[in-house]
Amino acid sequence: MNTQAIPPLAADAPVVLEMSNISKSFGAVTALVDVSIKLRQGEVLALVGDNGAGKSTLIKILSGFHQPDTGTIVSQGKEVRFASPRDARAQGIETVYQDLALIGDLSVFHNMFLGREYHKRVLGLNLLDNRKMREQAQVYLDTLGISIPSVNSTVDLLSGGQRQCIAVARSIYSSPKILVLDEPLAALGVRESAHVLGLIQNLRQQRQVSVILIVHNYNQIFEVCDRINFLHSGEIALDASTADTSEEELIRIVKSGLGRNAIDAAAAEVRSGPV
């Protein structure tokens, strides 16, 4: 992977997504408080935070799985409301969930096309065009360099890495405008991680698709991301470009659970001595 080849994000890249003042509670549990994030065309944004910080809730709101209590989502310049995952998909927002949302009992190619099946008319009946889906899936996985025993095998027979690759491939297939990946590297070995990171790097190079990436390995963030948002206790505690921060600073901020300003202020206080 040649990181030198990645051009920096153009300064005038338009904003494609703006989630403003999003709050969400589940009964007595507050998941998000007044969270705002911004995503520009072709940008790869890392969303980091501890378990339970609200990352998954935020992206499930973006993907239409949950509905926010308050706050607005502006996509491509107009305000949108997603009542279901279908609505979000229709707006070009594809999500790969942590659980991958693959159907174990269905074949790889049926999974690839679930919810957007190809049909053919046979004697006036609208039947599945399995041959077309099989061929398209095979061709597409070959182009991405994803190797599986057969597109006919059911997903429950594949390894964790293979499943992850299928899920990512499925989300890229529809050429989305915004791609959301919730811990896409969680269950992967070194080789498979490199593969998925390669797919993301490839998207980043072309600057067509904007990506939101939830990931725990900070090393990988600096490899493939343009910007970092750190979510702590349901609030955004840091919003910085990867060029302006370092892995050490990020780890310090994540460990303290405080934003950059708070840490700087505390450091200044220590330097000036007790009042």
Partner: peptide, 22 residues
Amino acid sequence: RTTFGLHTIATGSNIIGAREIG
């Protein structure tokens, strides 16, 4: 051979996943 059948299987096989995918 139909979308209806495919979605029927998806519903029983992995209901949350099926919902997430629409």
